[in-house]
């Protein structure tokens, strides 16, 4: 009845290097259950919080990001809107979108919540395999000392 596309890409990498824009890397997965706009927002967020994207640096425009990632303009717009709502980026009319000036306290909080999130994952995984809290703390201690 219809011709369905069997050629479905699993990942698509956009390496977005331009003279003005710092390294901004977004990798999209088609097979993920996470919506594309969330994938974009999550990765940019991580790069801002992780300091890879510095305060005040210019991000790709909504349109060029959409072109480079091969996604719809509405998708990238939504991702930027989410980051803007979180106060991570600012759009200056006519000039572009910049990484917002980050309050160090705020950044720290954000990073902490990231740690918390990952630990929560670890806890739930540990529960699945029946690790006790002590076992888990021990594991964490060993890992921390290894570094």
């Amino acid at each position: 009845m219809y011709i369905y596309d069997i050629y479905s890409m699993s990942t698509m990498t956009g390496d977005l290097d331009t003279p003005e824009t710092p390294r901004m890397r977004v990798i999209l997965s088609n097979s993920s259950s996470e919506p594309i706009y969330e994938q974009i927002a999550r990765q940019i967020r991580a790069q801002i919080i992780g300091g890879e994207l510095e305060e005040g640096s210019l991000l790709s425009s909504i349109r060029s990001l959409a072109r480079d990632l091969q996604v719809s303009v509405i998708t990238t717009k939504r991702a930027y809107e989410e980051l803007e709502r979180e106060g991570l980026i600012d759009t200056v009319g006519g000039k572009g979108t910049f990484v917002a000036a980050q309050n160090p306290q705020f950044l720290r909080e954000k990073r902490m919540s990231l740690v918390e999130e990952k630990l929560a994952d670890a806890v739930s995984e540990a529960r699945l395999v029946g690790l006790s809290l002590d076992d888990l703390s021990e594991m964490l201690r060993l890992l921390a000392e290894e570094e």
Binding site: Y2, I3, Y4, D5, N30, A66, Q70, V71, V73, I74
Partner: peptide, 10 residues
């Protein structure tokens, strides 16, 4: 082909 709309179509 519906998948033509998957990515770039707004």
């Amino acid at each position: 082909i519906l998948t033509d709309l998957d990515r770039v179509a707004d």
